[in-house]
Nucleic acid binder design. Structure first.
Length: 258
DNA sequence: AAGACTGACACACGTTATTC
DNA sequence: GAATAACGTGTGTCAGTCTT
């Protein structure tokens, strides 16, 4: 890709200005200034189609991803639609949300598939019906923000608690799922339910509770990669979450009647 | 049953932080 | 300010699982 090449050349001569004198090679560059963002993305898509690129990464030219990027930016999260764009802008890694990470959070919560998010992240995105469900144009952008925010917060929390890198990857999407289940009080959180949430609903306490819950089940099942990729973990987690939800709603019932 | 596909892992490399 | 340590990133291999 030309922008990548030109970027590298610029960096090279920025670091080594003296080499500019000796350099005699030429490079033909065609500069196109698109009128709109849509046109720009079409060009990217067309020029990239010469060399095969996985479908999932080409999807990021869909309008919905630009909308997500624009929205997250207003909340100080940076959606890495164009790889390394925000890194080059000097944004902090913890504020940069990769396309695949958001996708994994989405499938964990909206499709209740943390196992797939952990083990087979791109497979689901290749499937058109799943993709359309996760990135439906009617989904409110707040939903994407809350999922990105909650996902990143869970990830950071796991790291801060000193969990090993592999344990973090094995647990994080289950934690994200659990957090949103308890926050929305349903095993099957929808866009609508998440939309009604607030940042404060995704508290440190809730995340800690979910980390302990998932960790406990994971350990009991053997704490291996296989467990994190399999289906039993999710089943156990769901049934324990259901018990907690019931207990919470009974508690509320008592408060209201009493 | 085979092939596709995944993340973990190890490693090399470059950048940033720390120390003296 | 240089030397060193710590950290982060990219790449390739590998074992294991899921899909067909």
């Amino acid at each position: 890709m030309v922008c990548q090449t030109s970027m590298e050349i610029f960096r090279h001569f920025s670091v080594n200005p003296e080499r500019l004198q000796k350099e005699r090679r030429n490079l033909l560059v065609r500069i196109i200034v698109p009128e709109t963002e849509e046109a720009r993305d079409k060009i990217i898509k067309a020029t990239n189609s010469q060399t095969p690129i996985p479908k999932s990464s080409l999807r990021v030219t869909d309008p919905i991803h630009r909308q997500i990027e624009d929205y997250l930016k207003t909340r100080d999260l940076y959606y890495d639609r164009r790889k390394n764009y925000y890194k080059n802008e000097g944004k902090k890694p913890k504020d940069i949300i990769s396309v695949s990470f958001l996708a994994q959070c989405l499938m964990s919560v909206l499709m209740q598939r943390p196992d797939s998010a952990r083990a087979r992240p791109s497979t689901l995105l290749e499937d058109n019906s799943a993709y359309k469900k996760l990135y439906h144009k009617n989904n409110d952008l707040v939903t994407y923000y809350l999922l990105a925010y909650g996902g990143r917060k869970a990830e950071i929390s796991l790291k801060e608690k000193g969990f090993s890198p592999s344990l973090v990857t094995n647990l994080k999407f289950y934690v994200v799922y659990a957090v949103f289940v308890l926050a929305t009080e349903t095993l099957y959180p929808t866009n609508k339910k998440i939309f009604d949430l607030d940042i404060e609903d995704l508290s440190d306490d809730l995340i800690t509770q979910c980390i302990e819950l998932t960790r406990g089940i994971f350990d009991r099942l053997g704490a291996t990669d296989k467990v994190a990729k399999g289906s039993e973990f999710l089943e156990k987690l769901k049934s324990e979450l259901e018990i907690i939800i019931d207990a919470n709603s009974n508690l509320e019932g008592c408060h209201k009647s009493g």
